[in-house]
Structure formats: structure tokens, C-alpha cells
Design a protein around this nucleic acid. Sequence first.
RNA 1: GGCGGCUUAGCCAAGGGGUAAGGCGGAGGUCUGCAAAACCUCUAUUCUCCGGUUCGAAUCCGGAAGCCGCCUCCA
Length: 465
Amino acid sequence: MPLTFFNTYSRRKEEFKPLEPGHVRMYTCGPTVYAPAHIGNFRAYMFEDLLRRYLLYKGYKVTQVMNLTDIDDKTIRDSKARGIPLREHTKPFKEAFFRDLERLNIQRAEYYPAATEHIPEMVSLVKKLLDSGHAYKSSDAIYFKIKSFPKYGALSHMKLDELKDGARVNSDEYEKDTASDFALWKFWTPDDGDVFWETELGKGRPGWHIECSAMSMKYLGESFDIHTGGIDNMFPHHENEIAQSEAATGKPFSKYWLHCEHLMVEGKKMAKSEGNYFTVQDLVDKGENLSAVRYLLLSTYYRQQLNFTFDGLIAAKNAITRLRDFRDAIESGVGTETNPEIESIAKKAAEKFETALDDDLNISPALAAVYDFVREANAAREKNGLSIADAEILKQTLKRFDSVLGVIYVKEQALDSDIEKLIELRQAARKSKNFAESDRIRDQLLAMGIILEDTPQGVRWKRKL
RNA sequence: GGCGGCUUAGCCAAGGGGUAAGGCGGAGGUCUGCAAAACCUCUAUUCUCCGGUUCGAAUCCGGAAGCCGCCUCCA
């Protein structure tokens, strides 16, 4: 089965064929750096990470661009309120974003362009639109003329005359021809403070949409393969990107559009007023395990709303523990006598895993394949043991799965020397059959987050998640 | 008002005309020092409700209820 994606543009699943064979160029909508990103934002970045990792798994070369929106009403408002330059204001949020990506084991994209670094590219794009009659200058801004782009609405499947005027912006405030025209370049007003660029377009700043068009085309070319984002970005943001990009170049913009659904927390829309609004740091402060957070965000099909709950986090922790126990159990084999079932178990699991993800990154059946693999391999191992070669097959298969999942083979902290000492003490107590003492030490270690496992090969330890 | 999505076990979650994947939890068992940990086995006659189509419906059609989005700078 070929790799297929549900393309928002066509509203159907389509076989994925990159413009350049073997090389995928994709633009993944990134954060607006006015506050630490919340777990809802990270659901989207996690979906983008899954997409990236699976493309790499399939052997594609991937060029991924993720923008950092550092010019918008909120960053300007807040930096002005703090009386510091825009860049200084957004810097810590950018740093926090990268720290969170790392903590959630989200792979780095190839490029993270910031809007402030790409003003010339945006200016030249706007000029092109002005020259070709797709944009016009008004007293407060340069606007894109939607009527000049007949395909407008093709992505979101909304017709212009169906749009309700003034849901959020009072259209009378702006001097534009049509309420739905959007700003490409906003002229400076006192509210902008010292945030402005003196350009051929006049003193001002870019609109939101133009940044993504300019930056995606700079790094990926005028036409590229995949554009992703949260479902809320579909309209108007992505619709506007298509309009301004295709109007400027006359070429198709992105070939595939993938949108991920929103995240709910404890069954409710995440909102500060509900008290269910969490950043990654909030979860760390609550003592939550970030592998479990990663698993929870990853384990629901991206086009399905995901309900983030603390019960779900416990279930995720236990599920990961099972996977890591298996990882440890197959670490080494013995001898050369091959277990006849191992190869076919591994092969079948890999096929199921790929068939699932090939189908629009449907992660649930892919996870089912992983757990079937674990169960069947465990049963075969208990029955006939593992040779060195068998263990290697299982390990390679599990590692390959984890190249997509990113929750099994993770760096773990080494043991402190005092914990090692306690483990030795317990072993001594067990040897002398002083079980009361050995159990006491085991409980003590458990309280410190260390779980001991007595096996025929000796004692093993692991951290409680 | 317009457009879109969802409702499957105690919880999470696949499937989408041929008789309900997987995870967590729970129950039994193996191992063990009586334990812990691990592993194995079992765990939905039924898919929000009401009609219809069909030999056959969780799946298709019609209707109802509930929940969640988008409709001009939210992932």
C-alpha cells in the first residue's frame, strides 16, 4: 500500500508523490512567540514530528521549515508594555520553545525562520502583488484583493458570500474594498511603538499571512509538497497563503495540506479560565513524565480531537513501561539455536505498522502492531528462548518502530552511588535470607522511584515513571 | 445563520456492509522467598437513540439528542 494523506484541499485521501522523487519539502506552521507554547500547540508540533519521522522511516530525504512568528499584535503589545525591544521580548519564548521541543523528543526541522529576519522577502512579494494588480494600497495598509483570485476558498470550502462579516473585526474600521480582503503590509500607527520597518512599501510591518508565504517559498521553492498546521489555521490563514502565493507566482503552492484537530483537556476546551491550560513546564512542575506526555499526544490519530487527561497520562506511563520492559528483555540472546517464530513475528509486525501509518498516519493500528509484536515475541521467547541473532532481529525491529514513536530508546539517567549501594545491601540481605531487611530496602528504593526486579539472571532496576 | 467533525467496554481508542484491533484498569495463572517486578491467559452477542435499505448494519440512508470546532491574525 502506498503512503496516502488526507488532503484538506481535495477532502480525500491521496497517494503521496513528492514533486522531487525521494525528497519531501514541507512547511509546518510554528509558534507565535508571545508566550510559552501550551500542550495544545504541542499536539500540532507532535503531529508534525510524527509526519517527519515517518517520512524519514520510509527513506525520504526531508526538508522541513517551521516558522517562528515574532511579529504580531500580541508580541508588539507585550513588548511595548514591558518597554523593551521586540526581539528582546520574544527571545526567551523562542528559547523556551526549543527547550520544550527537546524535552518532548521532537526532532528539529531543517529551518526555523523568524519573521523579523525575512522582511525583504516579504516586501518583494508584496511588491509583486501590487504590480500584478492583486493588491492595493489603502490609507492604513496594503491589502490583498480577494476578488482578483477566483480560486479563493478552495481549501476551506467556504464561499465568500457565506462568510459572516465582522465576527471578530469590525470591518468598518478598516479602509478596504471588501471586508474579507486581508492586510499584506500594515502601515505604522503609534500603537506599534518602535516596531516598524522603513521599506519601499512605506513605514510599517508585515501582516501575518505574508510571512509564511515569503518564508516557505524562500526555503522550499514556489511549489512544494506538504503544508501542515492546526485545523483553525485552515481558514483564513492557509487560504490567504494560497491566494497571495499563487497570485504572485502563478504556480501551485503546496500540493498536500494536512490539518490536525484540536486538543481538549479533561473533556473541555483548554482555556486559562477553565484552569486546564498547561504548558510543558506546568506539567514538569506537576511531576509528570514527558515521555508519557509525548505518548499521549502522539497516540491519537491526528484528525481526531484528542482528550488530554491525567488518567490518560497514567495509562500512557504504564504503556511505555511495558514497551521499555520488553526493550530490556530482548537486550541480549543466548547461543545460536534460532527460535523459529521470531523472524515471522517481526516481519508481520513491521508490515502491520507500515500499513497503518501509510494510511494517513493512522497511529492506533500502528501501536496495536507494536503491542502484538511485544506479546507474541514475549510468548515465543518464554517458549523457546532467544538466540543472539533472534535478539538482534527483535531489537532492530523495535528500534525501527521507536524511530517513529520516540518513547522507548531514550537516554536515561545513571544511578546515584547511594542507590547503587542500597541495591548491593539488599542483595546481601537476600543472600543471607534476611527478607525483612531486603524488603525494607526495596520499599525504600521504591519510595525513591527505583523499582527492582529479581530475575534468574540477577537483580535489575528501573525508574518508576 | 453558513460550513465541518465527533458519539464503540470502567477509561482511552481502531475498524467502517460478512459477525468487534490495541492500550490502561480489572480477574486468573506462571515464576518467586509468602512478596515485588516481569510474563501469559481472560475481560463488548454489541457500537448514543429512533426509523429505513439489505440475506446480513457499529458500518449505508433519513431523523433525533449530546459534545466539539471554523466563519478575518488561535495549533
